[in-house]
Design a protein around this nucleic acid. Sequence first.
DNA 1: TCCATATGTTTAGCCGACTAACTATATCTC
DNA 2: GAGATATAGTTAGTCGGCTAAACATATGGA
Lengths: 158, 158
Amino acid sequence: MEFDIRQSTGHLMVHVMKLHRHTFHKLTEEYDIFPGQPPLLFRLHEKDGQSQKELAESMRVKPATLTVMINRMVKNGHVVRRPDPVDQRVSRVFLTDRGRSVMDSVREALALLEEISFRSFSAEDKQLFHRQLQQMAKDLSGFDAGRHPEGGSTTEME
Amino acid sequence: MEFDIRQSTGHLMVHVMKLHRHTFHKLTEEYDIFPGQPPLLFRLHEKDGQSQKELAESMRVKPATLTVMINRMVKNGHVVRRPDPVDQRVSRVFLTDRGRSVMDSVREALALLEEISFRSFSAEDKQLFHRQLQQMAKDLSGFDAGRHPEGGSTTEME
DNA sequence: TCCATATGTTTAGCCGACTAACTATATCTC
DNA sequence: GAGATATAGTTAGTCGGCTAAACATATGGA
């Protein structure tokens, strides 16, 4: 019996995440915020003025991705870039007033999205689901690490 | 107590799907196949010569997305486009020999990906997980439908 | 001091998804 | 039959992610 992609859970996950992203976009487009951006906003809210490298690492995104994203968010007035005074290579990112003011609405939108996604889950089921995802992340990055034996342990998974 | 995006399950899901996509890409790049393309390949394998509109619907993707994807797959020699003989508006898509020959490897890669993703799940847990995702898809599209009361029922979820 | 190397960011180009606007062909209706 | 409308596909432009290569600035060592 062959593996049927169309009935695989992986395929279903892709579909669900498309819906998830789409719903979030609908909930936040009025603030000129797009689905990849909240993680940046919230990290800056926690600690303003981080370097792009710090942000990229913490967001698990490549620096090149951040460069482009930040350009857009500067254009939309959510953040500003200021060069580090002592090391001219690094540029530090700061929330603007607009960025700060938009945060609450975005947080609410995310809370709503979470509520919708898990509204049919019991508390225990959601916890289990969360732990299962953590395990899946571990298994997926473990496999990847196995094929690139160089690098570090990659077992620490926040 | 504020909603903490960084600990939300939605956030974790996004991360897991990034790993999932990345792992799949690594497993198939040698065949010039990219993560969005297997659904097209498998649908054509099931029924060759479908129109782009049929494919777009079944893949739950917009026709514009397919146009571009098919262009690439034509370039890579996986499929060909042939105009429908009776309706000159529609173009039908067919697997090439290469497309057909690549399928088995891609199916194996997907089976492996599924194995890796769920290797820590018991059979029951995986079933539960699958059902929970279906429910989540229903809840997410239900919410979306609620904001666009026109459209159809959108409750049929294959 | 000067060159080599290391580090932080940017640029260019690719894939996947979307929307909006446009083209081309069919079909329907008067 | 001619014009209006509907349908299929394409094009252009956007966002998010990536890699590879370029650029800029620091820092090290000889």
